[in-house]
């Protein structure tokens, strides 16, 4: 079953909240991981691996650095969901 944008956003919000302690409602598509959500490069890896496990989309190391906003991550996961 393919996840919708909203499913992915909600799932990511939970993951980011768990990792950083920010309220899940703060995690919206326009927020940047580094500046708005205070996610450093190691936390970003934790978020990527947890998201891989949840959504089944592979997120290679070199892609992780390109995910600037929560929306970028939603789009990447959506485009790389397993068939």
């Amino acid at each position: 079953m393919a996840y919708s944008d909203q499913d992915i956003l909600d799932g990511l919000a939970e993951i980011v909240s768990e990792e950083t302690g920010v309220d899940a409602s703060e995690v919206t598509a326009d927020k940047t991981f580094t500046d708005d959500l205070d996610v450093d490069s190691l936390s970003m890896m934790t978020i990527a691996v947890t998201a891989e496990e949840k959504f089944g989309a592979k997120i290679p190391d070199e892609e992780v650095k390109n995910l600037k906003t929560v929306g970028d991550a939603v789009n990447f996961i959506k485009a790389n969901q397993p068939a």
Partner: peptide, 12 residues
């Protein structure tokens, strides 16, 4: 070292 990639490998 490439810290974030090492982190991912080391943990998981």
């Amino acid at each position: 070292m490439e810290g974030p990639s090492v982190f991912r490998w080391a943990v998981w």
